[in-house]
Design a protein around this nucleic acid. Structure first.
Lengths: 205, 205
DNA sequence: ATGGATGTGGAGCAGGTGTTCCGTATCAGG
DNA sequence: CCTGATACGGAACACCTGCTCCACATCCAT
């Protein structure tokens, strides 16, 4: 009796645990490909499970979304840390923007949750604040070192990220990369454009 | 009998015509404020009419959307013509981009129809082609006159417009204008780094 | 004014969503 | 094995959407 009270979290049946992981994997792939608006029934169908099973593991829709996105968000946090560790201020900032865009390119659902008005976004409020604060550091360093123009603020970079996140043509790598390039030029100081850009400019007579 | 056949378009009852115009006005305001996804029932409610009346005047949802947006689209065409008439190539291009952004700021539904994947967009395919071709002229002129960098193409400007159209923070004038500014800097030639400096070089021989 | 053409309103249909219920199948400790 | 707790599947519910049907109201030419 007392043991039962202490052991609140009972070990779940192994098949149930397998189904849970399988569901997260399927949902993660599906959300990445087609966004967060996929019906629960469709996730269940692709996982080869019943709809009730999905709701047993994830009572509400947002629970499934947050579970599917959790490790991706952690991954983002790692990349942001890498940018903070980069010694060159411009490479740090532009690298963070690029890796943000890259996620957007490969995972349609992620930024929908991180930046959109999606209900599931609430679960990642803490991560969003962390990322915003880290990005602020990157911008400050870049401004102080003269890598970006003196009037550039964290708000400007937030505008850039939001533009990248909401970009409708983001499935096209060409278009997305062009947008990132144009925005980075907009941020950079006149003598400190991105390496790719300066290379291209030199090639043009 | 034969007269009835010839007179295919009969004059509608005056109250019906009034309701039709009222519906378009209500729908236009509603779509501008809250986007094109508003339910038909909500439009009917705001107009003080029954849902069946809405469907009599506009059999399908897209019919109402296109009717509500028709004069706005015509307005856009007029503004684009004004840009084509502007002698300064940079002012012409940046003006077109700015006025595009301004529409986005004041009408949430318009660019949703013009640039988004919304079903109603099909009705404005002709207008979109016209606008795209006009924009191409503006870009060509700007490139030839040296107002934008030599590698800038119409595709780049399309990327910019799409980014503006899909920008999620577009309800905030500050953020939207900042985005436009950053993008224009990304397009502009080095000696023309901000819209303000364009005043320096008014006339292009 | 009046009667038939024209227009209206709201209930109802069809299709789609998230979520719940409950009989049945499956696992795991005895 | 066998048996009870655990988990599953799919039908069903509640809600929302665009759209239709039809009895009733309104207009306007006669």
């Amino acid at each position: 009796m007392r043991i039962a009270e202490i052991e609140v979290t009972r070990k779940p049946r192994t098949d149930a645990e397998l189904n849970r992981r399988h569901l997260i994997a399927v949902a993660r792939a599906a959300f990445a490909d087609e966004g967060l608006d996929l019906p629960m029934r469709e996730i269940a169908r692709r996982a080869g499970l019943g709809i009730a099973t999905v709701h047993r593991h994830f009572p509400a829709r947002t629970d499934l979304v947050t579970a599917a996105l959790a490790e991706l968000v952690a991954e983002c946090r790692g990349e942001m840390q890498a940018s903070l560790d980069e010694p060159d201020p411009w490479r740090a900032l532009s690298g963070a923007v690029h890796s943000f865009a890259e996620h957007r390119l490969h995972d349609r659902g992620l930024n929908q949750a991180l930046f959109g008005s999606h209900p599931a976004a609430a679960a990642f409020a803490v991560d969003r604040r962390e990322q915003a604060s880290a990005m602020e550091q990157l911008v400050d360093r870049a401004r102080e070192s003269g890598a970006v123009r003196p009037d550039i603020t964290a708000a400007d970079v937030r505008v850039c990220l939001s533009a990248i996140a909401s970009f409708r043509l983001a499935h096209s790598a060409t278009h997305l990369h062009r947008l990132v390039e144009l925005l980075l030029i907009g941020l950079a100081a006149d003598d400190r454009t991105s390496p790719e850009t300066s290379a291209r400019r030199q090639a043009i007579p």
